[in-house]
């Protein structure tokens, strides 16, 4: 039989194996521990991000035209539906403006300065997405220079898609809520039920159903399918009132002691071209 490895190769393979496992475990531990990326990694990321940005110009154009060709097919039905919806939005907008100005004057009277609902958004373009089996991360074209910091929530379309996981000088990485590693999706959320709110956190992502899971709910308030879910602002880092999604199903957990709620995220996590990063006023203080 032909020898596959010489003994020298075998030793190299064994040493290599330990080095690589050490590297994986070590860098994973380091990334979890710190808020700042090591200098070398940051430098490489900035460099890579610059190249990526150049390459993304033509590929994004191709992707966009593919998307618009796909959209063209259901434009007619969608347009009809949207027309009926738009009237109610005009009404809501006027109401929102009135309520907002009232809210501001009331805050002034109470001598409240900034609350959890005050936040700015920084818009950014997705320049890359990791072609990996796990930990699908986005690379966006704004970084520390635009005031981003690790942990800030990221929105796309109508709702939350994840949070900033790593900040470099001119670009940043976004860990998606579909990512169950680390604390990528531990958002404090509240379900706006008909009989009062139910608070909790997103405890998991069910990748088989493509839905978020909110577990360990002991509140007796009724939760129905279709109730809206938003961030609660509890914890103070994430602004309150960011749209997360809608309740898809309510079940009891394996022991029958508490409720488990499945939430359909409002944003399409597969196709994200532009994002907004929410920068809370409370945090910048």
């Amino acid at each position: 039989m032909r020898k596959f490895f010489s003994s020298k190769t075998a030793v190299t393979i064994i040493i290599g194996f330990f080095v690589i496992v050490g590297l994986i475990a070590g860098s994973n531990w380091w990334a979890r521990r710190t808020n700042t990326t090591p200098f070398f990694q940051r430098f490489m990321n900035d460099l890579a991000g610059g190249i990526s940005r150049v390459i993304s110009v033509p590929t994004n154009a191709v992707g966009k035209s593919a998307d618009s060709a796909g959209n063209l097919l259901n434009t007619f039905a969608e347009n009809k539906k949207l027309k009926s919806e738009i009237d109610s939005y005009a009404q809501d907008k006027v109401r929102l403006q009135t309520v907002e100005s009232e809210n501001q004057s009331l805050k002034k009277q109470l001598k409240l300065k900034e609350t959890l609902t005050d936040y700015d958004t920084v818009s950014a373009v997705t320049i890359s997405r990791s072609p990996t089996t796990w930990k699908s991360q986005l690379v966006i074209d704004k970084g520390a220079r635009a005031g981003l910091r690790k942990g800030m929530p990221v929105l796309a379309g109508s709702g939350i898609i994840g949070r900033i996981s790593e900040v470099n000088t001119v670009n940043a990485k976004v860990a998606l809520i579909s990512d169950t590693s680390e604390d990528a999706n531990r958002f404090a959320i509240t379900i706006k039920g008909t009989h009062g709110d139910v608070n909790g956190i997103i405890s998991d992502f069910d990748s088989e159903r493509g839905q978020l899971v909110m577990g360990q709910i002991t509140s007796s308030n009724e939760i129905k399918k279709g109730d809206t879910v938003q961030t609660s602002g509890l914890g103070g880092v994430i602004p309150a009132g960011l749209f997360v999604g809608k309740v898809a199903e309510v079940t009891t957990d394996d022991y029958g002691l508490s409720k488990k709620v499945y939430i359909e995220p409002s944003a399409d996590l597969g196709n994200i071209t532009t994002v907004l990063v929410a920068v809370s006023h409370m945090e910048t203080k």
């Binding site: 990526s52 390459i55 993304s56 590929t59 994004n60 191709v62 992707g63 966009k64 593919a66 998307d67 796909g70 997705t126 320049i127 890359s128 997405r129 990791s130 072609p131 986005l138 690379v139 597969g270 196709n271 994200i272 071209t273």
Partner: peptide, 11 residues
């Protein structure tokens, strides 16, 4: 290019 394709052809 792999990463760019992944993001731009995400749909």
């Amino acid at each position: 290019l792999d990463g760019n394709l992944m993001s731009s052809l995400g749909g």
